[in-house]
Amino acid sequence: MDVLYFAWVRERIGIPKEKVETEAKSVAELVEELKAREERYAVAFSDLSALRVAVDQELTEFDASLDGVREVAFFPPMTGG
């Protein structure tokens, strides 16, 4: 699946987008896999309360299922308007 990062999450991880092969069943499991990869992921995902997630371009929660999902995006709380 495609994993996207925006704003300071993108800056901390160092890339805007990557393809990830995963068996993770939920967003939370995917986060654990990413954190175990490298320090920059562990830093970016150290406080999930400071992050939001969208699955297939819809806002959701970290316990959301990844069944059939093509795109997951991580970003800080939004500051539109």
Binding site: A7, W8, P76, M78, G80, G81
Partner: peptide, 23 residues
């Protein structure tokens, strides 16, 4: 709603550097 639920992120650039605007 579009302040907190539309996917935009503001970054401010000053002489001291750049900072993401916190929600």
């Amino acid at each position: 709603y579009l302040k907190s639920r539309a996917p935009f992120w503001k970054k401010e650039y000053t002489a001291d550097g750049a900072e993401w605007v916190a929600a």
